[in-house]
């Protein structure tokens, strides 16, 4: 086998980018296992006690639960809306005015701080919705642009005539969507779900305004924690959060990935 020669400059840039992407993860993991009472890197000693500390803190666990609940709900709702919006735009794009597709991208243009504040004013203050509901509404909206964009991208290479083929062979259009269209845009849907989930899970700016006494998301909790303490707990929380994210991604890949086996 012949080895492809890589331009050394390109290779160097590649490695730099890798290092740049990996460094924060390495540092956080290192800091989390440090046997010190302050954040330290490289780690001094080895200890898992900060993980224990995190798991015992009720505020962390409660906010983690809220975060998961919000992320899962917001992602699901955004998926339902985004999937149909993207499909509609791709399928009937020619008969819809061009600006319509951009509507779904609008949340990206509004600064999140402003968006969070206006949500606080309307949803929480005027409508008096519970905090969790407000969080789900807010996160759904910030997840939606990613959903629509990413799913649209994979639909743009989808050949709609196979949909017609399935229909002409006697399949109901709804079933066609589920068994023909979805399996063929699977990777785009998975990417969109993962992206939306992470966006929701990591959001600070919007959540900052919506969280209230007693109900908080994990990033906000971490935020308030580091204002008071400087121990490696926050690093341990981050590592746990990364772990959860990876597990969720794997689960999503598994469940949606199964679409391929569905005949």
């Amino acid at each position: 086998m012949q080895q492809r020669s890589v331009n050394p400059v390109v290779a160097a840039i590649g490695w730099l980018v890798m290092a740049f992407l990996m460094a924060p993860i390495v540092i956080v993991i290192g800091a989390a296992v440090s046997d010190t009472t302050y954040l330290a890197f490289p780690p001094q000693g080895f200890s898992l006690r900060w993980f224990g500390n995190v798991l015992q803190q009720r505020s962390f666990m409660a906010s983690f639960q809220t975060s998961m609940q919000v992320a899962i709900s917001a992602t699901s709702i955004a998926l339902a809306i985004g999937l149909f919006a993207a499909y509609g735009l791709a399928r009937f794009g020619k008969t819809i005015p061009a600006w319509f597709g951009s509507v779904f991208l609008l949340p990206l243009f509004v600064p999140e701080i402003v968006f969070g504040f206006s949500l606080l004013k309307t949803v929480i203050v005027s409508l008096e919705l519970p905090v969790t509901t407000a969080l789900i509404v807010g996160h759904t909206i910030i997840c939606l642009p990613y959903m629509v964009r990413v799913i649209s991208a994979s639909l743009s290479s989808f050949d709609f005539s196979i949909e017609e083929a399935a229909v002409s062979l006697g399949m109901h259009p709804i079933k066609v969507f589920l068994t023909i269209v979805l399996p063929n845009i699977r990777s785009g849907v998975i990417a969109a779900v993962v992206l939306a989930f992470i966006t929701s899970l990591n959001d600070v700016a919007v959540s900052l305004f919506l969280t209230g006494p007693g109900v908080s998301t994990l990033p906000i909790e971490v935020f308030t924690y580091v204002e008071q303490f400087f121990d490696p707990s926050v690093a341990a929380v981050s590592v746990l959060l990364m772990g959860v994210t990876i597990i969720v991604m794997a689960l999503v890949e598994r469940t949606l990935g199964l679409g391929k086996a569905v005949k």
Partner: peptide
């Protein structure tokens, strides 16, 4: 009448095969 109830067999000009299914499927 909607297309799925017309019972017409079609050979498409661009084939329109299902990419995620085998030839037999």
């Amino acid at each position: 009448l909607p297309p799925y109830r017309r019972g017409i067999g079609i050979v498409f000009q661009n084939y329109a095969l299902f990419p995620h299914l085998t030839v037999a499927q």
